[in-house]
Design a protein around this nucleic acid. Structure first.
Lengths: 244, 244
DNA sequence: GAGTGGTCTAGACCACCTA
DNA sequence: AGGTGGTCTAGACCACTCC
């Protein structure tokens, strides 16, 4: 396969051309999970500076094609998982950005053996228990979302109702337990409200809800929580700005 | 207000500290839409290199706090619009990433005077008409989404069914009409299928759907289309990877 | 210790916008 | 013409991972 050099007179930026080349490489010879050429190799191969290589890789990372790991390398993202890159914010921070005041009502706290889907998401051994934290999230005093968080008991022994009743679970983990949040995989899909959800959220049964679900990880890749949150469709719009 | 210098011995990166400072500035003294200090001013004020300043601003841009415009400056994003930054992809590209084959069936093409919401989104003068392009989008031969696009007639005179029947509207605008797509504002919310949507998408009435809606703009900020797309909730999951 | 990506510097040229 | 952000270079030191 011929590998044409980058065109330095093109109206397309070098890093953009390079990103296209790497994307082609991925499609043609690098299966999901495989390691891409290192930055220094790409520098030598295409005769560009390191910053330009890093710009290209960053673009692909934002587009969900690759994942970079310090000390290890850059890897092709798992297929069917070609996600968009976003920033992780807590419910409280999310509401603050929308100009709303966040509030929480604890509906239940229990130690349970989780469903398989959640045990898998948290990479638990069979029989390991989790805290199930069931909360109603309010915005400006009105019900906004219903969230259930699952946290491995082994990681947060002695969790009490007091600790989760008032505020952000993220802040608890980060500020009081010294854990450093890393990243989260989330999926969003529409559902319709069942009777219990409808009553708690104060909407008619079968109203549209938006379900956001997935595990969160610490910086060292340890799964720390699995969250399932159902937002009221009439109050919560997920808004984004997409650039080409 | 005292303005402490950045801490060069902190475990937090300089660009991260600077981003926090700028975010504080935004909350305290810069209303939405106002112009932030220029890059060169931030360089002088905090004694860091331009790349570090740009890293900080890029982070805030990805988090939806600011918008940078070449030649003009960097501005505080409109509040209540504090979006997440994503990458704009066409339906075809989106399906390709998911490993599915995209297909399209044209359901209708008409020249109409649009509803007010759409006329506003496209910044039309009263009475200006749009092409209404109604299409069923298929993935691997199965109905996936129902989309209605509105394009100002003045911008694409003489649009025919042939031109939109087969493929991507984005590709038509970009490759055949030489327009350069810039960005898009999208909102996502859950809805339930009405009778006509249910039949076309081959799902039961009142099934959950995901409605994605909003205008798209050319590079020069000219509105080029307003799209309303309803995805089947059972087939389309919006997945993302969020980092801290 | 060698290799990786993460951060940072100090320059440079360019395209775009406003005046 | 002068100011803005967009791109690019050629170095440097660091933290992390693996052997």
């Amino acid at each position: 396969m011929l590998d044409y050099p980058l065109n330095r007179n093109s109206f397309e930026a070098l890093y953009y051309q390079l990103a296209e080349k790497i994307r082609q490489m991925i499609h043609q010879q690098f299966p999901p999970g495989s390691k891409l050429p290192s930055e220094s190799e790409l520098i030598g191969r295409y005769h560009v500076s390191r910053n330009t290589v890093r710009q290209a890789i960053k673009l692909l990372e934002q587009q969900g094609y690759v994942i970079s790991r310090r000390g290890k390398g850059t890897f092709v993202a798992p297929v069917g998982n070609r996600y968009q890159l976003m920033h992780l914010v807590s419910f409280s921070e999310d509401m603050r950005r929308r100009g709303l005041k966040a509030d929480t009502r604890l509906l239940g706290l229990a130690e349970i053996v989780p469903l398989e889907k959640i045990a898998n998401g948290l990479q638990l051994q069979p029989g390991q228990t989790v805290y199930e934290i069931h909360r109603l999230r309010l915005a400006d005093g009105e019900p906004m979302a219903l969230s259930t968080a699952y946290v491995p008991c082994a990681l947060v022994p002695g969790l009490t109702a007091d600790m989760v009743a008032s505020g952000s679970l993220f802040e608890l983990l980060q500020d009081r337990l010294g854990m450093r949040l890393g990243y989260s995989d989330r999926s969003i899909r529409p559902v319709v409200a069942d009777a219990s959800q409808a009553e708690l959220l104060q909407v008619p049964v079968a109203s549209p809800l938006m379900m956001v679900e997935g595990p969160a990880f610490l910086e060292n890749d340890l799964p720390i929580e699995y969250v399932v949150t159902c937002y009221r469709g009439d109050r919560y719009n997920f808004v984004f700005h997409a650039v080409r």
